[in-house]
Amino acid sequence: MTVTFNEADLVAVSVGGVIAHPGFPGLPAEPYRLAADGTPFLLPAWGGIVYNVSVGDKAFGWAADCIHPGVSIRGTDDGRNRGLNVFSCLGNTATVMTGQAQGSKGVVTGKSGRFSEQVIIHFPKEVRKKMAVGDQILVKSYGTGIVIEGHENIACKGLSPDLLKVLPSKVEDGILKFGTVATVPAFLVGAGAGLTSEGGSLHMQSTDKAALAEAGLDQLKLGDVVAIENTDSRYNHGYLRGAMSIGVVGQTDGPRSGYGPGMTVIMTAPKGELGTYRDASANIASLLKLEA
């Protein structure tokens, strides 16, 4: 179905950042992190240019800790970075402004971190080979302020018109429902709960592999659209019986407790106004026709 919204009222504005370098705490801190069982590990983590992981690939099983598919960018200071993270919308166009890949186009596919550290952008693999840490990326931010006509109690967050128009949807008994690959039970909601829902990500817990399998989450792919039950993300992420949020899997899992695949929430409602139905094909790689 066609979802109608206030597209004519939305403002398009530029936000930007640079390709972020993966980082560690300064010396004398150790570079190791702790897995859920207390085992120290050292694995590639978020940030930088990831050459061999893309939206549409598996979300579990990489030798990595919450890796971002494609390219990660951040603002040059905390204030600018906050603006970049809040106003970037999934489905927005990103343009490389400097370096050998200048002029290349990408698409925003996720937001990172409990504290809104980075924005995740898909570029074709051949473009990534030409890119360098520090290259400037400009995002045409368009989508903040979306209101869905007839369903005003659904709050949209970081959702572009381009993505909203292609999300599978239908109305049943007056409830607007979107197609999702799976539903994350409230007890599997991990890092990010209690923090602001304006930017950043909400993680699912993945330590209990049997629970993941029972919920049908163990085969998730990056870019899958998922429901998050009993979760109200209007102002911050919190448990609320009957609430529903919808997000996009933007980051892989990792060994740490509470940091399973990260999800960028794109819509939420508190009292049953937002519904979902099963659609195994609901992945933004195909919905947005992302070039490999």
Rank of each mutant, 00 (worst) to 15 (best):
M1H: 03
V3P: 02
E7V: 15
A8S: 14
H21A: 15
P25C: 04
G26W: 11
R33W: 05
A36V: 08
T39S: 15
P40V: 01
P40T: 01
L42T: 00
L42R: 03
L43C: 03
N52A: 11
V53M: 07
G61K: 12
W62V: 03
A64D: 01
P69R: 05
G70P: 02
G70S: 11
V71F: 02
I73H: 04
R80H: 05
L84I: 13
L84F: 14
F87Y: 15
C89T: 08
C89Y: 01
C89F: 01
N92T: 03
G99Y: 04
A101G: 12
Q102K: 15
G103N: 00
V107A: 02
R114W: 08
F115I: 12
H122Y: 07
V127T: 14
K129T: 06
K140W: 02
Y142Q: 02
H151K: 14
C156I: 07
G158L: 02
P161S: 10
L163S: 00
P168A: 05
D173M: 00
K177M: 13
G192A: 12
G192M: 11
A193P: 00
S201N: 15
L202C: 01
A210I: 12
E214C: 01
A215Y: 06
Q219K: 15
K221M: 00
G223A: 12
G223Q: 11
D224Y: 02
A227S: 10
N230D: 13
T231N: 10
T231F: 00
T231K: 02
N236E: 13
H237W: 01
I246R: 13
G250N: 00
G254F: 08
P255V: 00
R256D: 06
G258P: 00
G262L: 04
M263H: 14
V265N: 03
M267I: 01
A269N: 03
A269E: 02
P270T: 10
E273S: 11
L274T: 04
A280M: 09
I284G: 08
